[in-house]
Design a protein around this nucleic acid. Structure first.
Length: 176
DNA sequence: CGTATGATTGTTCTA
DNA sequence: TAGAACAATCATACG
């Protein structure tokens, strides 16, 4: 048990207003801050690994993922959340409500409960790492001309990367 | 019709 | 070291 010393808890959530502000001084991200599908024009682009909290919310909102996990408890939580959210705010914005409720609930969870989520998050990170390598490699191939400091990783990690291509859902064909 | 925004925390990255 | 930015979820809204 950690003493609830609110030492660094003085962080005001309101200070987080930079979230919406995509106009970051550093252009480490695409100039066009479109976080929609259109923005994901590069599927190979490795997106940041979702945090355990995101996994939690993800499960809470969606049910397909819940299936991936062998924990029916997640399903229960999801239904509970959906029901409450729907009852409380049938006409409101879902993400915001669930997000807030999720945050509160998330804090309520203990390390043990977050364990499964964290584990999932770890997997996400692994995937991210793999994707990053593939993306980097792809870029090197695409560029194939500008190789600034290409540090040769040498033969350190040269296995693992199996071509396990999981064809993800197919994009709808748009037939209306 | 399509994209952006709404809020949550965690992870990642850059200066 | 510290802070800034983005990661996904769905429903709603505007042009």
């Amino acid at each position: 048990m950690k003493a609830p010393k609110s030492k660094s808890e003085s962080k005001k959530p309101e200070s987080r207003l930079s979230v919406k502000k995509r106009g970051a001084p550093a252009e480490r991200k695409a100039p066009a801050p479109k976080k929609t599908k259109a923005a994901a024009k590069d599927p190979s682009k490795p997106k940041r690994p979702a945090s355990a909290f995101f996994v939690f919310m993800y499960v809470s909102l969606t049910s397909n993922i819940a299936r991936s996990i062998d924990v029916s408890e997640f399903v229960r939580i999801r239904e509970d959340f959906r029901k409450q959210y729907k009852e409380k705010h049938p006409n409101n914005k879902s993400v915001s409500v669930v997000g807030k409720a999720g945050g509160d609930k998330w804090k309520s969870l203990t390390a043990a409960e977050k364990a499964p989520y964290v584990a999932k998050a770890e997997t996400r990170k692994s995937d991210y790492d793999k994707n990053l390598q593939a993306y980097n490699k792809k870029l090197a191939e695409g560029k194939d001309a500008e190789e600034e400091e290409e540090e040769d990783e040498s033969d350190k990690s040269k296995s693992e990367v199996h071509d396990d291509d999981e064809s993800e859902e197919d994009e709808d064909e748009d037939d209306e």
